[in-house]
């Protein structure tokens, strides 16, 4: 079909009966300005990573150079590959923490959505109030309590507090209520399936798309977290990228040659998350007020 309008192929319209709307250049322009603003620092780090230490402060900001691989090699050589250790640590914290958090949230959300029991509403209210608790009030006492157990400055110090996610529980409850039909649970129960089996083989698969969102949320939150590891960890072998790069910048103040490594490290540290975002786009449907809209 050669007569197919090009817009149609780019933007599949859900209701074909809709009459063609006139385009507004102003609307497009505003969106593109917003996109440019958001891409500017990312573009900069891409270009700056290709510059040598001298070029970073001398050539025009957006003129690229050819030293990207030298910079990556320098960064990789820094203290025996410490940067890659930070990358591995971050992946461990975010991956394991996110996974455990999703499991805990799924179980709690399912329990709250599909059972009636004494203290249900109170439990939910208390858990939900956790959303409003700022991490500031938790950071210092969490450090002191974990210090009493001798767990500060270990992987556990960052992992354990990252597992509980009141917001994840809230989301999981909504997904469980919406995606798991009561009839199905009842039918399985009549067939003699136990509660845990029903949860594992019926509820979890039905809740799966929502649970991916819960995982992504927590994964990004842990990946981006700074305060908790900054307080908990003293040994730079355990640092995640955020704390490691922040420290590297600090040293750069007295050792400007490190700035190139900081810039290159920044680029490398956002690559995995950007890749994750682009591949899992469809899970980024964030409905904060889902409970309110549904009624």
């Amino acid at each position: 079909m050669t007569t197919l309008a090009p817009e149609r192929t780019i933007q599949p319209v859900s209701t074909p009966v809709r009459r063609p709307t006139s385009r507004s250049p102003v609307a497009t322009a505003i969106l593109l300005v917003g996109a440019a603003y958001c891409l500017l620092p990312v573009l900069w780090v891409l270009i700056a990573s290709s510059k040598s230490g001298a070029e970073l402060f001398s050539t025009f900001t957006f003129s690229p150079s050819t030293h990207l691989f030298d910079n990556i090699a320098d960064l990789s050589a820094y203290r025996g590959g410490l940067f890659w250790r930070w990358m591995a640590n971050t992946t461990l914290y975010a991956g394991v923490g996110g996974l455990l958090s999703t499991i805990v949230s799924a179980a709690a959300g399912y329990g709250l959505a599909k059972y009636t029991f004494i203290g249900k509403q109170a439990t939910f209210n208390v858990l939900l109030a956790g959303v409003l608790v700022p991490s500031v009030v938790l950071a210092v006492p969490q450090y002191l309590l974990l210090a009493k157990l001798g767990l500060t400055n270990t992987y556990w110090a960052v992992l354990l507090p990252s597992i509980i996610s009141p917001y994840g529980i809230y989301l999981a409850r909504i997904y469980a209520a919406a995606a798991v039909p009561d009839d199905l649970v009842e039918a399985a129960r009549t067939d003699g399936a136990g509660d845990f089996l029903i949860f594992r083989s019926i509820a979890v698969p039905l809740m799966a798309p929502g649970l991916v969102t819960v995982f992504l949320f927590q994964f990004v939150a842990i990946w981006n977290n700074f305060l908790l590891p900054y307080i908990m960890l003293g040994n730079d072998q355990l640092f995640p990228l955020t704390v490691g790069l922040s420290g590297l910048l600090n040293q750069g103040a007295s050792q400007p040659s490190l700035y190139t490594s900081v810039v290159t490290g920044s680029l490398l540290s956002i690559v995995p998350l950007v890749a994750l975002f682009l591949t899992l786009q469809r899970y980024w449907k964030v409905d904060l007020a889902a409970g309110a809209v549904k009624s």
Binding site: Q11, V13, R18, T21, S22, R23, S24, A27, T28, I30, L31, L32, G34, A35, A36, C38, L39, P41, V42, W44, V45, V220, W223, N224, N225, F226, L241, T242, V243, L245, S246, L249, V262, V263, S266, S269, I270, L273, V274, L276, F277, L278, Q281, W284
Partner: peptide
């Protein structure tokens, strides 16, 4: 609004900073 073009690109571009930790964005 269907009146704007480049919506998919803009949505991705504007959402991208969420993938950048505050420490890194402050650095940049």
């Amino acid at each position: 609004t269907p009146r704007a073009r480049a919506r998919k690109f803009s949505r991705l571009a504007i959402f991208l900073p969420y993938a950048v930790p505050a420490v890194i964005s402050s650095l940049l």
